[in-house]
């Protein structure tokens, strides 16, 4: 197993945001995390990336314990992430943004630059290479974040709603990019609201509701799962009735 999470819980004060989450991820998989807002998927995601420390439970990456490791230690071990609201380095050029990622494995400037150039080209940002990141719109920023984390040469990338806010054409382009990243042998965990993305990309889905994993399985089966319908559609139906 590349990544194992056992009984991961996280409380904020007295509020239990995540309770006993389980995940076993084999190298080369793409797993989706879905669930309504506040279901705990972002909390779980942040525990996996090292941005949050679990209150209890264990997380292992490639056999070594990373439960309480810092985000930078996660990056060094090979776990990369993107952010829901893109956190690109606004004043730096696109190539320089990617170079920050590349410096992790290539301390020398020349090598980092070469590696960053290849990634920028791979991500289709070549033409805009010398523009500052702030000149990009949301789709460009999300693409740049993906390029930047790729440059740090991770084994696992955690994508946090990397496709939210994109139009249908951009979504198709982004899906194609994620497929090409997967084809490089990189394992992916995807948090996403858009069902189309989940259905077309992931091999397995974990459904969160009220801090717990209520179902897991193949995306096609998950859509018909009663607990999932309850969590997603049930609420909406009840709301409609109330109105």
């Amino acid at each position: 197993m590349l990544l194992e999470a056992h009984q991961v819980s996280r409380a904020f004060g007295s509020f239990l945001a995540l309770s006993g989450a389980e995940l076993e991820l084999a190298e080369g998989e793409i797993v989706g995390l879905i669930g309504p807002n506040g279901a705990g998927k972002s909390t779980f995601f942040n525990c996996l990336s090292g941005d949050l420390q679990p209150t209890s439970g264990r997380i292992l990456f490639a056999g070594s314990e990373v439960t309480r490791a810092t985000p930078e230690a996660h990056a060094r071990l090979g776990i990369g992430r993107t952010f829901q609201v893109p956190a690109t380095f606004e004043e730096m050029s696109i190539l320089d943004n990617v170079m920050v990622g590349a410096f992790l494995r290539h301390p020398a400037r020349g090598e980092a630059r070469e590696a960053a150039r290849r990634i920028v080209e791979f991500a289709g940002l070549d033409r805009l290479r010398d523009q500052p990141a702030r000149s990009l719109g949301t789709p460009g920023r999300k693409r740049l974040e993906i390029a930047r984390v790729l440059a740090s040469e991770p084994r696992l990338i955690l994508l946090d709603e990397a496709l939210a806010g994109l139009n249908p054409v951009e979504i198709q382009e982004a899906i194609a990019l994620v497929r090409r990243i997967h084809a490089r042998g990189i394992t992916l965990v995807i948090v996403e609201h858009i069902m189309e993305v989940i259905l077309s990309l992931t091999g397995r889905v974990l459904v969160f509701n009220q801090g717990r994993t209520i179902a897991s399985g193949k995306p096609r089966d998950i859509v018909d799962h009663p607990a999932v319908i309850e969590a997603y559609l049930g609420q909406r139906r009840q709301r409609r009735r109330r109105e």
Partner: peptide, 26 residues
């Protein structure tokens, strides 16, 4: 400024959380 140190400094200035996620020992 031209080397890794300079890039890491500018990344820290732009956003510590993102910098850490890329392995920058802030």
């Amino acid at each position: 400024e031209r080397g890794r140190m300079g890039y890491y400094w500018r990344a820290i200035r732009a956003g510590e959380r993102a910098a850490r996620s890329l392995g920058v020992p802030v």
